[in-house]
Design a protein around this nucleic acid. Structure first.
Lengths: 123, 123
DNA sequence: TATAGATTTAGAATAATTCTAAATCTATAA
DNA sequence: TTATAGATTTAGAATTATTCTAAATCTATA
């Protein structure tokens, strides 16, 4: 594991949850001033592919990277894209299992809202 | 309602469900040869804003437009982006309501899989 | 020390969608 | 009919997050 990859992993683990590649890059630059976005993307995506972090993709928002690996759902602000974890809601999957007859699937549950600070912000 | 807007509405209502703007454009061109993508986007998004059709946005897929207005969930192929409706699964919302204390939210449930034809296709 | 493979860099490319400003159309009022 | 304001459409540029490419550099081992 390269120095930069380790750094990316640490920053995702230590920073706030649901960081964007840009946020990781900003933090990484403090330790490796010349580091480039492509490197951060490379490493974050590699880490996600290896299952060391998770990558959360929601339409109209920047991809986010998360240290939490266990499946859970998200609350996303449609205005600023900020993301919070939801406790794992018990989504009943029996009907899905029946419908898909053994076909593998993964569930993504997103609750959309306008977060407090956006509600209070003008415009 | 302009001629083109009516046309877009009809094409979403008559075509297959979950059409992309591009598919609507292809169909629209047969009736209005000079019509431009921006017009299709304009009209589809206006129709969605007015609640006459719905717009479904999933990360990494083209936006899709749907005649179905009642809330329901989607099964999306991660390879080709094709989309099917899911019967409305009973997602328990009491915990969400508690968590968000009166804050308005909308739920989006997406099941990701690889569709049959992609499973059978090479690569 | 040589070398192959991995990593990083810089910058171009991608692609769906939106934006902009000008042109055109449409409906109503004079 | 004509004038006019507003809506609609057009053409093409812009946006933007992310990916790609090819060259440069680094690293670990033989």
């Amino acid at each position: 594991m390269s120095k930069n990859k380790k750094l990316c992993l640490r920053l995702v683990r230590e920073g706030e949850s649901h960081v964007t590649a840009e946020q990781v890059w900003e933090a990484a630059r403090k330790e490796v001033p010349g580091i480039v976005m492509a490197t951060v993307y490379n490493n974050l995506n590699a880490l996600a592919a290896e299952g060391l972090i998770s990558r959360i993709q929601v339409a109209n928002t920047k991809d986010r990277y998360d240290r939490t690996l266990s499946p859970h759902f998200h609350l996303v602000c449609d205005r600023c894209g900020s993301m919070r974890d939801l406790m794992e809601l018990p989504v009943p999957t029996e009907q899905m299992d029946l419908l898909l007859e053994g076909d593998r699937y993964s569930l993504e549950l997103i609750a959309h809202h306008i977060c407090k600070s956006c509600q209070e912000a003008p415009l």
